[in-house]
Design a protein around this nucleic acid. Structure first.
Lengths: 216, 216
DNA sequence: TAATAAATTTAGACAAACCTAAATATTTAT
DNA sequence: ATAAATATTTAGGTTTGTCTAAATTTATTA
């Protein structure tokens, strides 16, 4: 078994790997709220366990073994988030911290039964895909709202930013998972966007449009 | 907040306090699977935080603050055990280890909602009372089967031993929570007991009778 | 391409929670 | 009441995961 700290490093490396092939020490330090020297120590330890490929100064990638562990933690995190929202009626902006603790509950039998109990959900409350018990999952083909043209429409299927302030803002505007929106206009001055959604018109900043993900 | 180790010490002191007013260093070392010297270190730390009353060589008691924390952990443990059995269909002998991890999930809001989700259960799968959100709970008036006379009857409401081997044995014999039993006879030689339960007759050892709890 | 800046690693410490071995208190038994 | 046995604490280490400060490597830029 791995320690809590090791699990958090593997998870962070996995997340950062989605953007960059090689993950740097400083990226990890920033994400994990720690110092670069602490990261170096841990990278040596994870490399000794052959969970990562580590070349000093060159950053890291996960090995197959490391990725398997990371995906399993993400599976647990997302299933617990789903549980908290669907069964315990938490809001989508309230569950992240709790799931950060719950993802480390070790039993796989438990998580598989939880999965079954909730009828094998495919996406968590933020639209992120939930890996199945073999670690497999499908990504939607998602684009930020900011990437689409005037007069095209799409369905909200995810968010890039998971902060509660962003999620609360979206909730208040009714911009939640599954809603159909159309881009009516783009303001030239600041590239903010005018959206149509269920008879209502609303305006969102470029910043918001960049972080709101849709399928066409 | 308290560390995981601190929480486990407080919980253990609480459990041991039910039998002995003052809890000794060695009792804690045995229960926590650690060494007496390690216990001494932790007792000093908990005393500094005024969670226990500690006089060197004289053992410890919980302060009101310490007891509150201990009872809250026990509340969480028992609610999660109930969840695992009632919602995820685990058997009563399978849930202890998982609940040992889950009891440390910090959110009280989470546990209160879980409590509500399950409709405020009063007893866990082993018959132990679940403290409410104010830490209050009622004990059944329980006696071991070994303490009752021939031709008296009672309802199984708890177990003294929580080991999975004991629980599995009881399960196999059908001696589960809620079952009504009558003591038909006591064998003089080894004081084993002949029980009547739902048309069946079965014999249990003194050892089993000591660990099976009933209400009259 | 040499100097500077930025990123990373190394060296040496620290706190938490544990350990062993030795010292000290308390309890039990003769 | 004292010797022996038992329980507990103290002293000094270890490991994990963190830190700061200094050294080193890589990247940038003039």
């Amino acid at each position: 078994m791995n320690t809590l700290a090791e699990e958090n490093y593997l998870k962070s490396i996995y997340h950062l790997s989605l953007n960059d092939e090689n993950v740097s020490t400083n990226q990890l330090a920033a994400l994990l709220n720690t110092k670069a020297s602490s990261v170096t120590d841990m990278l040596k330890k994870l490399a000794d366990k052959t969970l990562i490929n580590y070349t000093p100064y060159q950053g890291v990638t996960l090995t197959a073994a490391g990725e398997k562990i990371a995906v399993n933690i993400i599976r647990k995190h997302r299933l617990w988030e789903f549980f908290l929202v669907e069964k315990l009626s938490f809001k989508w902006d309230e569950v992240h911290e709790m799931a950060e603790e719950m993802e480390h509950i070790s039993s796989n039998e438990l998580i598989d039964r939880l999965d079954k109990f909730m009828d094998y959900p495919k996406y968590d409350p933020h639209g992120d895909p939930i890996p199945d018990s073999d670690g497999k999952f499908k990504l939607h083909d998602l684009k930020p709202v900011s990437a689409i043209e005037v007069n095209t429409c799409g369905v909200i299927c995810g968010v890039r930013d998971h902060s509660s302030s962003f999620l609360q803002y979206l909730e208040k505007q009714g911009l939640t998972i599954g809603k159909k929106i159309t881009v009516n206009d783009i303001i030239e001055f600041d590239r903010s966007m005018i959206l149509q959604m269920e008879n209502k018109t609303l305006q969102i900043s470029r910043e918001v449009a960049n972080n709101l993900l849709i399928t066409i």
